[in-house]
Simulated assay, not measured.
Amino acid sequence: MVSSSSIRFIEAALEATGDRALSYVHHGLKWLIRDDLLSLFDDFRTLSPGSDTLTHNDGTTVHLLYAHGVLPVSSSLPPVLLTIWLHQAYPFVAPIVYVFPATGEQMVVHDHPFIAPSGSAVLPYLQTWQYPKSNLSDLARNLVKVFRICHPYGFIPTSPGRTDASLASKREAIDRLVAALHYDVKRFQAQIEEDMKQLCSRQATLRERTDMIDRALGDLELERLRSKEAAKQMVDNADVLSNWLQSHGTESCLYMDEVEGFEAADETDRCLLDNEAAAQAIDDAVEVLGEALAAGSVTFANYIKQVRCLAREQFFHRAMVAKIQRSNESSSERAIC
């Protein structure tokens, strides 16, 4: 039985005018608001009526009725302190439910599947509110069932039990599914964040190795240019020596073989020298890569990849050298005959 003081308070609030008038837009349905509140207080005696100003998220303020108090959940779980505000467009718009900490030790848990960070309840029942199928008493009963599934203060029932899927109502099945999906999403998000951290770490490592390989390749290119410059200098010195030998008459014949060893006589010999030099340069490059692998500057996979490429290129250079040498030998044999 609802107390007479609660009845008088609700009736007086609904009949108030002026500054104390409520903000309900459907004046002809005030009797429905009264009956729904009385039915709620009759079913849940721990709740009591009140009226105050509510500020919506868009900044608008309204004067509304509310039901405040502790909502019993079960014998093994503590009650939940909450306030149920009746929206100014009630009953066509769902009420607004806020959950509060009961004590300093009973705080609302973070990442609750049915409670937003602001403390407002986010229930499938509220999201699918439809008058006249929905009412305050059924909302409170749904809150009890939801809080048994996931208590706002993080308590776990001593004997939770299991609900037979064939006996569970459609509403309860939806609530349990929403809770399960919420925790699955949180678990997946945590796993995704951990995977992202590992991938970022691997990416940083790969970038470091890429920079090391780029520096090694840069050093090899610099060494190639230095070798090319040294070869050019040797050719120039050979030209100077050849000119000097030629200017000294018959003595130049004694050193002609050495001069020909430094300077290519024709395009074929130049091609032979270039390919032989390229093949020997690749040997040097492979040796440098081996030193980088031993020092840990490059990975084994990158080392094998570079060596394979260099070996393939060296094969063609060696083949060209062999071909030219065979051609020169055939020419020499024909000349002797």
Rank of each mutant, 00 (worst) to 15 (best):
L181C: 08
H182G: 00
H182E: 01
H182C: 01
Y183I: 05
Y183T: 08
Y183P: 01
Y183R: 06
D184W: 06
D184P: 07
D184T: 05
D184F: 09
V185F: 11
V185M: 10
V185D: 09
K186S: 12
K186A: 11
R187S: 08
R187D: 06
R187Y: 01
R187G: 06
F188N: 13
F188K: 13
F188I: 14
F188M: 11
F188T: 12
F188C: 14
Q189A: 05
Q189E: 05
A190P: 06
A190H: 04
Q191N: 03
Q191T: 07
Q191E: 12
I192A: 15
E193D: 02
E193N: 02
E193R: 04
E193K: 01
E194T: 09
E194N: 07
D195G: 10
D195W: 01
M196C: 11
M196K: 10
M196F: 15
K197A: 04
K197P: 01
Q198W: 04
Q198V: 02
Q198K: 06
Q198E: 07
Q198P: 08
L199I: 09
L199M: 02
L199S: 01
C200I: 14
C200A: 15
C200D: 15
C200F: 14
S201H: 08
S201T: 03
S201N: 11
S201Q: 11
R202E: 15
R202G: 04
R202F: 14
Q203P: 03
Q203D: 07
Q203C: 12
Q203I: 09
Q203F: 05
A204Q: 07
A204S: 03
T205D: 12
T205L: 13
T205K: 11
L206M: 07
E208L: 12
R209M: 07
R209A: 02
R209Y: 05
T210A: 13
T210M: 00
T210H: 12
D211E: 10
D211R: 14
D211Y: 08
D211V: 05
M212G: 06
M212A: 13
M212F: 05
M212H: 14
M212Y: 07
M212W: 11
I213D: 09
I213L: 13
I213A: 00
I213G: 02
D214K: 15
D214Q: 15
D214A: 12
R215I: 09
R215G: 02
A216L: 10
A216G: 05
A216E: 11
A216W: 10
A216S: 14
L217C: 05
L217V: 12
G218P: 00
G218K: 00
D219A: 06
D219F: 05
L220R: 01
E221R: 10
E221M: 02
L222P: 11
L222W: 12
L222Q: 14
E223Q: 08
E223W: 06
R224V: 05
R224N: 00
R224E: 03
R226G: 05
R226T: 04
R226E: 10
R226S: 04
S227R: 14
